[in-house]
Amino acid sequence: MGLTERINKTDKLSYYEGQIPIEYVYTYGLGLEKFFRAIKDQGKFLASTCKECGVTYLPARSFCERCLVKIEGTTAVPGTGTVYSYTTVHLNMDESPKKEPALVALIDMDGTDCRFLHYLTGVKADKVKVGMKVKPALKAKKDRKGHIEDIVGFQPS
């Protein structure tokens, strides 16, 4: 049994337009606050290690998701890593073509059990390899705001 009436003429199809006009201000929280402060002020990467299971998280976290216990301290790690996987992005969010394709990679971060999502810089797509060693390129200190884009990207080391 279907509904009794259908719209058969496409010019009878109508819609109503709208949007959800709200915006957001996110605090970073206890863990990320420490991480981004250190990037901004010292150019350092802070990780945190769970005393129960020994897993080292990057960026630093305030608790261990596996053991559900608090993590108190942080330790600095070099910020270097190895490309785990990568992709070449040709389109913007709205599907318009990018002027320059962007290289996006997942990077296994040295001294941690975590991967980082970021851009690759200073390297052509055909030269990128899984397993390639990379190091971070940071903006100049005066331009850093405590934001993920304080890291320009990762470049071959």
Binding site: E23, V25, Y26, Y28, L32, G146
Partner: peptide, 10 residues
């Protein structure tokens, strides 16, 4: 405190 402002344009 660090924070990030964002407006999703949906």
């Amino acid at each position: 405190l660090l924070s990030l402002a964002k407006q999703p344009k949906l």
